[in-house]
Design a protein around this nucleic acid. Structure first.
Lengths: 220, 220
DNA sequence: CCTACCGATCGGTAGG
DNA sequence: CCTACCGATCGGTAGG
């Protein structure tokens, strides 16, 4: 269920090298250290020296494997959005809207539970991205939201869902799932499958509204 | 409904000065500039020179009004949590759990819609806080969550609510409302009252679960 | 409220 | 992969 992805950094390396078999382990070590440190302290509060120290080298040595600190951030944020997009497509089926909703929500929640550092950076460090990467990430995010809007619109059209605003419903559901990254612990009393099912339930309930606002469909 | 609050910075000023009538306008100007810049770029990406420029003075001049950059952040984050706590108590009634839930959720949403910069900083810059302010803010946050847990537990005990996990329900509902700060626009097609009512509806629906997970009450 | 300035730290480069 | 070093920028202070 977890989508297969190739890190942007890894891709760059493969493009530069002829031997795609020789995988520069340092590169993924750096990514991993950046993931932890950016998530804990934030991008601007993390120095290249910090990242170097985390993998046992000095700061300047990192430049043998990348061109800038920014490159690490871009790699993390782009691959995270690509993962979420691929995860949606993987989980989506051609069944009933209600069932499709449960499946993509479960995947959304699983991804956020299993990749808390990635999504935390993804949600906090957008201002730290330089153009054009920032635009790219925002576009990927819009693409992700668009998939959700389509699914929920489908259910609205078929009569399976009943809500006054597709847009608000999408925001509410996505945000709800994002929160899992902040509290999920693998050794908690709820299993990941239980949590995913719980959130799938909650999302499903959200979409069967008894409208109390003035007009039944306000806008999109 | 919006709780009255006194900025920590203002309090400090009043404590230092004898003339509490002479309110140093610069102080709140600085707070306002920090609010905008920290929210847009992040704390570490904002310099004292940036804040000074926003109010028409040089960076060093700011130190006539405060002792450190950190002080601005602390003020913003502490008063934000105090506002949320006071907002909860103000909105809470002694009626039925379902009605109390609707009222505090509407207030939660209104606050996030009307103070997007404050809550954005509040949710992103916790790692930028130095001790002991960090502990203090986390305690206030726990206090806020605790109020929600109590309310939802009340509704569970009285049979008004039906959910497998109070804790998960609180996380889901709070996070849902926090998201409003990221998309609400005063000139949007939905009025703030409509939005608040929508989220109150969604929260109410979340709490009337038909349990699909194995055990009906998993934990707290 | 300003200019001048401090020590520290940053991202990144040179050169080996 | 390292040391040495670069120019830039930072938060904050001195002194007026």
């Amino acid at each position: 269920m977890t989508p297969v992805r190739v890190s942007v950094l890894e891709e760059r390396q493969n493009a530069d090298d002829n031997s795609s078999t020789m995988k520069d382990g340092r590169r993924s070590d750096i990514r991993e250290a950046g993931l932890t440190l950016f998530a804990e302290r934030g991008y601007h509060a993390t120095s290249m020296g910090d990242i170097g120290r985390a993998i046992g080298v000095k700061g300047p040595s990192l430049y043998n494997h990348l061109k800038s600190k920014q490159e690490i951030l871009i790699d993390i944020m782009v691959t995270t959005m690509q993962d979420l997009l691929a995860g949606f497509d993987n989980a989506d089926s051609n069944g009933e809207p209600a069932e499709r909703l449960r499946e993509v929500m479960a995947e959304h929640v699983r991804y956020h539970a299993l990749h808390p550092r990635d999504v935390r950076i993804g949600n906090r460090e957008i201002p730290s991205l330089e153009e054009p990467a920032r635009e790219l990430v925002l576009n990927l995010r819009n693409e992700y939201e668009g998939k959700w809007r389509e699914l929920i619109q489908d259910g609205l059209d078929s009569g399976d869902f009943s809500i006054p605003s597709v847009r608000v419903a999408v925001y509410a559901i996505l945000e709800m799932g994002i929160g899992v990254a902040q509290w999920y612990r693998p050794d908690g009393s709820l299993s990941l499958d239980q949590i995913a099912a719980l959130y799938a339930d909650m999302a499903a309930r959200l979409l069967s509204a008894k409208v109390t606002v003035a007009d039944s469909t306000i806008e999109n």
